[in-house]
Amino acid sequence: MAAEGKTIDALSQFELTHAFGPIGAAVNFTQSNAHMLVASVVIVLVMIMGMAPRAVVPGRFQALAETFYEFVENLVIGQVGHEGKRYFPFVFALFMFVLFGNVLGLFPYAFTYTSHIAVTFGLAFLVFLVTTIVALALHGKKFFGYFFPEGAPLWLAPIIVPVEVVSYLSRPISLSVRLFANMVAGHVLLKVFATFVVLLGGLGIVGPLLAVLPLSVNVLLVGFELLVAFLQAYVFAILTSIYLHDAVHLH
């Protein structure tokens, strides 16, 4: 997070590069994917090693793994109901992948893969596909009744149906843009204030004194970004659960 020269370059942090040297370059493995890999390995390790003691009274590490598990489980069951247990691993994987991606991105020199619209849209489109397939598999043709609520007057169909269809199709867009925009905004802000620190620090004697201001802003921002990282993962998971609820119950 250093200023490139004397201008503010808040966006180069999002540029994709190759990871793992020539092997990575050969298969176009980006540093973004490398961070996904790290996050996934950490997630699996936390869950498996945390639960390794299988203690009845959990230690801290096991309590952490159990807290993740029960948090998402309660979220899924609260939104979808007990028939939603089947989809719990999917929501759990999404929640952890987004959460660890967001938090991992806050470490210095780390890349935030959730700050790429292609990644967030990929995940959101996956959610869209899964919910639609679940709805079709459970309800067949009745699923299309979802776009026209029961009891609405028939002559309103030309208005209601397009609105419902558009709102259904826009779900992956809103889901992906929300996460993407939050992460980009946070990281750009961090970068901008970090650059202020460097620029002000170079302004003679008073510079370092003034530089304390953007630095303290950045300290606060990191805390705020931690909150946003968790909140956005939570929002992503809860919206997925809500969409799954609609797919399972069709209303």
Binding site: L16, T17, H18, V27, N28, F29, T30, S32, N33, M36, L37, S40, A93, F97, Y113, H116, A118, V119, G122, L123, L126
Partner: peptide
């Protein structure tokens, strides 16, 4: 790299 990123995302996820 954008497309590659998404392909790897799907594999890793």
């Amino acid at each position: 790299l954008m497309l590659a990123q998404v392909v790897w995302l799907l594999i890793i996820f």
